[in-house]
Simulated assay, not measured.
Amino acid sequence: MFASRRLLPKIAKSTSSTSSAVISTCIQKRNYFTRHVPEPKMMIHLSKSQDVTVDSIVLSDSHHDEKKPVILMVGWAGANPKHIDKYIKVYNDEGYRVVSLCPPCYHYSIPNSRVGFYMSPLFRAIDAKPGDFRSFAKCPIIVHSFSMNGVRGLISFWKWTEAEEKPQLRERIKGIIFDSAPSRPYGKQDATAMVISTPPIDAFERWISEQTRISVLTWFLNLRAYLQIPLLTMVPFLRSFVSIYYYLQTHIALPRDQLYLYSKADTMIKAKHVEKFIEKQKEKGNSVTAIDFVDSEHVAHIRTHPKDYRTACLNFVRHVEASYK
């Protein structure tokens, strides 16, 4: 794979009748032997009662409650911003501000701090390229994380706080919602997520199908697991060095209030792994709410059970809001 040059994102102010203030990026012209991988971008979504222009994102005290939580959404592998509009609407309709980020490429490895850097303006409450976050300075942050790509985003933010020596910023997270996560994906699940979230190299796109890419990656990941499992069984502490699931369990101090939304019918993640993770969090003394939707597919719980999903999310956010007022 040849490295491609990337252009820095440009800021474009936009006024729209919708509830989102969207920051657009320039599109890079692709070369034959390269592939275009967009940089992650933050998007600020305001409720309908608020002005939605980028210029007015810094709101006066009379326009918003500084103690009202802001929801940080971290999308699943291959998610497009429009895919999470229905989730944003759940919170915007109740007057909550939402900041969203869809990390573009999923990978099975422990992430670096790159995505965490793109998330950091919200936590630092600064005026940055994605927007002006100064009005979010005192807001509790509730993370709504989708699938294992969302987990990678959370880990990446932890890594960024370590690199920048700003661990106090983690304390701004007062609650977390896991949708269809965390779990230990198997070879095919990891391969599928990697392929659907990473565009193919232009030169090979005509001859190598998406299914072929998934098959090759599945073979590689299954071989990797076959070689690793005996070693990890004998030396358990090594698990967190190769598994996102175990890294989250052992290296990330999650907030006290946690909500898990999952389903036994999910073919991308195993419910038993979510449930084992939940038990570990309960052993740590955290306040955990878990809902098994039973028959809904991966990150599709809101489509199968819209009322129950909406109620669970809003009750959780209101509980966190009441706890920190």
Rank of each mutant, 00 (worst) to 15 (best):
P9I: 00
I23D: 08
T25D: 13
I27L: 08
R30G: 09
Y32M: 10
P38D: 02
I44C: 02
S47W: 04
D51W: 01
D51G: 02
S56C: 08
S60K: 14
K68S: 11
V74M: 12
G75Q: 10
A79P: 09
Y91H: 06
L101G: 05
P103E: 06
P104I: 04
Y108I: 13
Y108Q: 14
I110Q: 06
P111S: 12
N112C: 12
R114Y: 15
F117L: 14
F117Y: 15
I126F: 08
G131L: 07
S135W: 10
K138I: 02
P140M: 07
P140A: 05
H144W: 05
M148H: 01
G153K: 12
S156I: 06
K159Y: 05
W160G: 00
K166V: 05
L169T: 09
E171N: 13
I173D: 06
K174V: 05
K174N: 12
I176L: 15
F178D: 02
F178S: 06
D179Q: 08
S180R: 03
S183G: 15
Y186C: 08
V195P: 01
F204G: 01
I208L: 12
S215D: 15
S215P: 06
T218D: 06
L221V: 03
N222M: 09
A225V: 01
V235E: 08
P236T: 03
S240F: 09
V242M: 13
V242E: 11
T250V: 11
A253R: 11
R256G: 04
D257G: 02
L261D: 01
K264M: 05
A265H: 12
E275Y: 07
E275T: 10
S287D: 10
D292L: 11
E297M: 12
V299G: 07
A312Y: 11
C313F: 04
H319W: 02
A322I: 04
